[in-house]
Simulated scan of single mutants.
Amino acid sequence: MYLTSPTKGRLSFEEMMDEIRSYIAGLPNSQYKIIIGSDSQVMKGQTCFITAVIVHRLSKGARYFYRKRMHRKIKSLRQKIFFETALSLELGGIIAKHCAEAGLDEHQVEIHIDVGSHGDTKDLIREVVGMVTGSGFNAKIKPDAYGASSVADRHTK
């Protein structure tokens, strides 16, 4: 699995985790959140899915990485939201396991879901939030889901 860093370029999963550990070690007394969020965009007969990994040093900045996947065209909004959430959960589970093994398990992992109480996705909130919390993660929805609605969205175009 490879991810992209805006500053470091293409990184393997291990290299990304090394970057995360290094970033946290830079100011070890700060508070951190590890945020996973996905977004998608239909383009040219395919759907582009971006899953972002953000390491947020609270009140002091952040670093992020993203993974791009192309999939057949998905027209159903419901199916796209569930697929985005599943991608976030998949990567979140791998990262949470890796953090626990590396002694970084005190840093909370959040899943940001691209749904909100206004608009077409409001009917999906209960289901996808239940999917995330049932998997053991904290779930955030719009307007607090900046991992999906801002960071991942930036790279879907």
Rank of each mutant, 00 (worst) to 15 (best):
R57P: 03
E127A: 15
M16P: 02
V151S: 04
K44C: 06
V42F: 00
I81D: 01
V128S: 08
A86P: 00
M16I: 02
E101N: 12
R57N: 04
S22D: 12
S135A: 15
I95S: 07
T156G: 12
F83N: 06
G136N: 15
S38M: 06
S30L: 05
R154E: 14
T47N: 10
F65Y: 11
K73N: 11
Y64L: 06
G26C: 04
T85P: 03
A148Y: 10
A139Y: 14
Q41G: 00
G134I: 08
I94N: 09
I111E: 14
G103D: 13
S38F: 14
L27Q: 08
I34Q: 06
D18P: 00
G45H: 00
F65N: 02
V128P: 11
T121F: 02
V128M: 05
G37K: 11
V128T: 11
T47V: 08
R69S: 06
L3E: 03
S12M: 07
R69D: 12
E84G: 02
G130Y: 04
V109S: 00
Y32Q: 00
V129T: 15
A62D: 03
L104Q: 05
I111K: 09
L89W: 11
D114H: 05
L124E: 01
A86N: 12
Y2V: 07
S30D: 08
L104M: 15
G130E: 08
A148K: 02
M131I: 04
S149C: 10
G45Y: 01
A145F: 04
T51V: 07
D114R: 07
Y32H: 03
K8S: 01
D120K: 14
Q41H: 15
R126I: 03
C48E: 11
D39N: 15
F49Q: 02
E110V: 04
A62F: 03
G103K: 10
Y2M: 04
V128E: 02
P28C: 04
V132F: 09
L58D: 01
S149A: 14
A100F: 13
G37L: 09
D114V: 08
S150Q: 09
Q79D: 06
F49E: 01
